[in-house]
Amino acid sequence: MRWFIIIALLFPLGAIAADDGRGMEIARTAEARFADYADQRGEATMVIRTAGGDEARRDLRARSLDTDSGSRSLTIIDAPPDVAGTALLTHSHDQRPDEQWLYLPALSRVKRIAAGNRAGAFMGSEFSYADFTAQSVDKFDVTLLREDELDGEPVYVLERTPDNADTAVYSRQVAWLDQTHYRTLRVEYYNKAGQHLKTLTADGFREYANGQWRADELTMTNQLTGGTSILRWREIEFDNGFTERDFSVDALKRVR
């Protein structure tokens, strides 16, 4: 798994620091620490809230596999019944464009998601399809904006701009990483017009037996509409023995 997911994660007062290549160095360190495992699986509940207070829930399972050239992930919706069986397959690549497919059980059909449609909402949430792709450092120019504090914790504030702006969903991202474990605590996403579109916050970090840190809760807030989507994770397990065959398009058709 590359830095960072969803399926990966203010108000700084510090002065802007000279970068001198430190941003990319910090990003590569974070990526290496996050990717130090073979595969991962977990279950979550997604709570989707509109600014007006309407609420919907989705129960889902997710699994991922680290590969030599990127990563693969599969997200499966289990509830409610009207969307159960819907599944999103992602092949993230370090050096070439990512690929995504959506399985629609009502039609028994696999639909390839075009690059131009990855800004679309996944299952009506504030998470886009693009948010389910791994963010390889090699696809970005990363700059250290400053060292600062977030909720009393020393952090690095990094700006990530895509190498290929034409195909990227976001024009830039600003991420807050803690200086001890390099965990992503907060990310601001900016659209092509330069507007602050969304903010991701990660809470309830837990260290697992293999030294991996994961947040129990990820909250994506739409700064323009006021809508929020919360992913609450449980039962995360590592090194399950997955292979690339478990993340093929044919496997997507057999999702249960």
Rank of each mutant, 00 (worst) to 15 (best):
N117L: 10
S73K: 02
R232L: 08
S71F: 09
K111R: 14
G204M: 03
A130S: 13
P97L: 01
T75W: 07
T184K: 10
R63W: 08
T29Y: 03
A32Q: 14
T219C: 04
R206P: 00
Q135P: 07
G227E: 10
P162G: 03
W213P: 00
Q212F: 14
T167Q: 08
A115R: 08
L252P: 09
R58H: 02
F205I: 04
P80H: 04
A38G: 06
G21A: 05
V137K: 02
W233I: 10
R232C: 03
L218H: 08
G241S: 00
G14Q: 06
A15S: 12
D203E: 13
A121L: 08
A119H: 12
L65C: 11
K111Y: 00
F140R: 08
M123K: 07
F127W: 08
F4R: 13
F34I: 14
K253S: 12
D82I: 06
N240K: 07
L158M: 02
E25W: 11
D39I: 01
S69E: 10
D178M: 07
L102P: 01
Q212H: 13
D239S: 06
S248C: 12
D131N: 13
S92P: 08
G14M: 03
F140P: 02
M24T: 12
G194V: 07
T201C: 02
D203Q: 09
T167R: 14
A15M: 04
E244M: 05
D59Y: 09
Q95P: 01
G226I: 06
A165V: 05
L197Q: 11
L145I: 12
H181M: 06
D19F: 11
L102A: 00
D246P: 02
G42D: 03
R96Y: 10
A62W: 15
T90C: 13
R160D: 01
T29K: 12
F127L: 14
V174N: 04
E55R: 12
L88H: 13
I77T: 02
F132S: 06
E217C: 10
A38M: 05
L200C: 04
S64P: 01
R254C: 07
A84M: 02
F34N: 11
H181V: 00
V249C: 06
A51V: 09
F205Q: 07
M46G: 04
T228L: 02
G120Y: 04
F140D: 14
